[in-house]
Amino acid sequence: MTLNARTRGTLLVLPATLWLLLFAVAPLVLLVAMSFWTSSIFGTTPDLTLDNYRVIVEEPIYLKVLLQTLRIAVTVTLISLLLSYPMAYFIATRPMSRKNTFLVLLFLPFWSSYVVRTFVWLPMLGRNGLVNSVLLQLGVIDQPLEWLLYNEGTTHLALVYVYTLFMVLPIYLSLDRIDPRLIEAAADLGAGPWRTFRRVILPLSMPGVLSGCVMVFLLACGAYVTPQLVGGTTGIMFGNVIAPQYTVTNNWALGAALSVVLIVVVFLCLALFGRKVRLNDVFVGG
């Protein structure tokens, strides 16, 4: 007896579907529900109140950090884009035999936890870090610079460093897909290199640019480790106001409401720009 294709499809996807309903959808539903509950020193009790959201609106700190988070995420995305596009172009224009080498060289540093990738900036920028040592040796400064670490600038720098692969990769893939004959045709028709780039290459690589931007923006919005480790007091982001609700004050309901705010912002952004994004490119490399 053979099952028909439809039944077989359903049976095959069933285990993963049930798993995801339990461990991806249910926690999210609980989080949304809890954002309307009440937390006190006695614990969190089911309720139906907007108090948590009222706190978020009324306490200026939350709006301020949310805006700062969005600002940092947008800036990090743009810096990544500017730095990554030429890099993606470089790899895409290498001969076939060397592409893989350059790709592996690019991947290698990202094959380790972002905790480590953030941590590496402490010995780079610290008091007796590499930058200060070199500047002291050269006689440019006679005191170690203290402002290299623990500010908004460091958060930007470290986030770009930690996530820029997610920009290079989708751009590279969309550049790599461009038919070389299109570029030759443009040249044959008299377009100069700049015009060919602007009118042919750039438009055709836009899906990759968009995928990379959405991805880096998403990752930056959810950042916690990087601002916590190198951001000091001025470089904090929304993740750093959510986490203490669970690790310090035990205000689960407020933490849930703050999380819902972040999710809504991120999903709105996805709804606006995410349609053309090829998730496959971003995560796996085609």
Partner: peptide, 26 residues
């Protein structure tokens, strides 16, 4: 289902963490 499959990636990192503290804690 395709959207549900992608959900764990699309939820911002920090929320992806606290969500489980709440879920398993509850």
């Amino acid at each position: 289902l395709m959207k549900v499959v992608l959900l764990p990636i699309l939820v911002p990192g920090i929320v992806g963490g606290v969500i489980y503290l709440v879920f398993f804690g509850y």
